[in-house]
């Protein structure tokens, strides 16, 4: 029993760690450009398939492949911003929603044609035996997932708080015109935020594949989970997104154990709608209306 509970808790944390990366990238773009990147879920899936492919080619553990996945997914983010964001940045945000949906459709169908619809498993993060704590055996996969995500979140935190890029990003998010007038190249800043967001999405894909598999159709569910985590955690806060991801993963693992997987998913969406109705500011408050 103790082992089951420990393992369940560990799995929840691992899933939450991956979701947190998805949610952080999602929020990063919203804060930088004031519009949702609807291809974000598909970028996570793409990251998963990049990991699957690299795993097949090189037969290396996921941790070693991670830099390559980050780089390739980041490149996808750059391409996305060039195709779907910059040409339309002067128009209303809905244009960007639709253009990112279009790119997401292209990405999803490219993956579908190359890999097929069946869920695929990516390379394990590490090759190691389960960790034994007395009676209890713990999955090293889950532990590695948590550690890897923790490293990335810490890296993001330092990037946003300690570097020039972070300061520029925050200035651009607050007031693009003002940022431009003090000499910030807002286009470069925005392109970089797309790259970082996509790299985080790719990393999340890499972390998700060994335990949860990926299939090309997962994008919509992933972006919704990121959104639920963000709505629960509030916009623009690192710890909010982390807590939101934990709640989403917890309800998914516990709901799937007690009820069924579809029932858990449905419950998540119902909670989302109820929250938007009753408490649209997030649990920690910030006016929903002010983010256009």
């Amino acid at each position: 029993m103790a082992e089951l509970i420990a393992q369940l808790a560990l799995n929840t944390l691992a899933l939450a760690a991956a979701y947190a990366l998805v949610a952080l990238g999602f929020v990063l773009v919203i804060n930088a450009v004031g519009a949702v990147n609807f291809a974000h879920g598909d970028l996570v899936v793409a990251g998963g398939f990049i990991a699957v492919l690299l795993g097949q080619w090189f037969d290396l553990p996921g941790v070693v492949l991670a830099p390559a996945v980050l780089l390739l997914a980041g490149t996808l983010g750059l391409i996305l911003s060039l195709l779907a964001y910059f040409p339309l940045r002067r128009g209303p945000p809905v244009g960007i929603y639709v253009s990112t949906i279009a790119v997401g459709v292209m990405l999803q169908n490219a993956l579908l044609n190359i890999f097929g619809a069946a869920p695929r498993r990516g390379p394990s993060l590490v090759e190691a035996a389960p960790l034994r704590l007395g009676e209890i055996a713990l999955s090293t996969q889950a532990i590695a997932t948590i550690v890897a995500a923790g490293v990335l979140v810490l890296g993001l935190h330092l990037l946003l708080q300690r570097t020039q890029f972070g300061r520029r990003l925050r200035a651009t998010a607050q007031d693009p015109l003002m940022a431009e007038s003090v000499g910030i190249d807002t286009r470069l800043t925005i392109a970089l935020s797309f790259i970082v967001a996509a790299a985080l999405a790719g990393a999340a894909g890499l972390l998700l594949t060994p335990l949860h598999f990926v299939s090309p159709h997962d994008g919509a569910a992933l972006i919704l989970k990121a959104y639920v985590a963000t709505v629960i955690g509030g916009w623009g806060r690192l710890h909010g997104a982390l807590l939101g991801a934990l709640i989403v993963a917890g309800s998914e693992v516990i709901g799937a154990t007690l009820l069924s997987q579809p029932a858990a998913e449905a419950l998540l969406y119902i909670v989302l709608l109820a929250m938007l109705w009753l408490k649209p500011d997030g649990l920690f408050g910030e006016a929903a209306g002010r983010r256009a």
């Binding site: 919203i30 609807f38 929603y97 919704l224 709608l273 938007l276 929903a288 209306g289 983010r291």
Partner: peptide, 9 residues
Amino acid sequence: LASHYFALA
């Protein structure tokens, strides 16, 4: 809600 909230909801 603001527009992206509506789209996602």
